[in-house]
Amino acid sequence: MNPIIVSDVYKKYGKVQALEGVSFEVEKGEIFGIIGPDGAGKTTLFRILTTLLIPDSGEALIDGHHVVNHYKTIRNMVGYMPGRFSLYQDLSVEENLKVFATIFDTTIQENYHLIKDIYQQLEPFKTRRAGALSGGMKQKLALCCALIHKPAILFLDEPTTGVDPVSRKEFWEMLKKLRDQGITILVSTPYMDEASMCDRIALIQGGNFLKIETPTNIREQFKKILWSVQSSRMFPLLKDLRKYHIVKTSFAFGDTHHVTIDQSGEDYVSDQLTMDYLRRYLEDKGHTEIMIQPIKATIEDCFMELSH
């Protein structure tokens, strides 16, 4: 039986429908990512799975235990790291770890091997108060605290939010190591670029799962023509692109714009010709240094496509 089984879970807060029938299963020893923007329902889902909220309808089983009826059993075996920084700011690094070890009825020594790699980076600061740590360090400490009792399943709600890119990369490396030790990890993130770090991902939007797939498959299933477009004036470029009739969608992606092309219309002849038409159209609009390149879809492109 899979460690996490969720079937048709609904949850409503007042008038806001946070989850609208979510179903998925996570396999043992897998990093499963829940990818979606803020307010998509990620935290609600995590809270239901960690027994903190009761779903309105639907069922969720953690290692075969019902999240509502057997909440005590579940609380004994999972590790949970909430989205907000939830350590004791006025306690030192070491004290925080000790407190959490005690809450889970264990000692730092007992499971030191699990957190060793992470904790070694924190060791120089072990007498520093948690509130005075950098964002990356805080998250590493929080991960240590969530791991200290050797949980079978780890729930990490946006562990990398507010963390610098280098620390984020390190953090994911740690997660992979933990997975290799057999720990099942459910992780959420609003950063699409982190999706490729997961074994499988679910794209979530407005309380609905858009798709559950491996990151590679999701990108490969993207069938549209996708170009990246650049010019010297990026903001007017986005407006002009959206006005052009063969361009189906156009979004800003960092320093380029990603456009998909309408292949169904009679104006579409071939890729190369259409690209030339587009270039000419943009030149007419007064753009210079125009660069158009066909690209492979990223997870974010897929997300935009699916959520449209």
């Binding site: 809270r47 960690t50 027994t51 903190l52 005590k72 609380r75 004994n76 999972v78 949970y80 790291m81 909430p82 989205g83 907000r84 920084f85 939830s86 350590l87 004791y88 700011q89 959490f100 809450i103 889970f104 009825d105 605290c145 969530a146």
Partner: peptide, 13 residues
């Protein structure tokens, strides 16, 4: 408020 209660609740305590 700090969110630590969330973690404590999801514990055997």
């Amino acid at each position: 408020e700090m969110g630590t209660m969330e973690v404590i609740l999801v514990s055997p305590m």
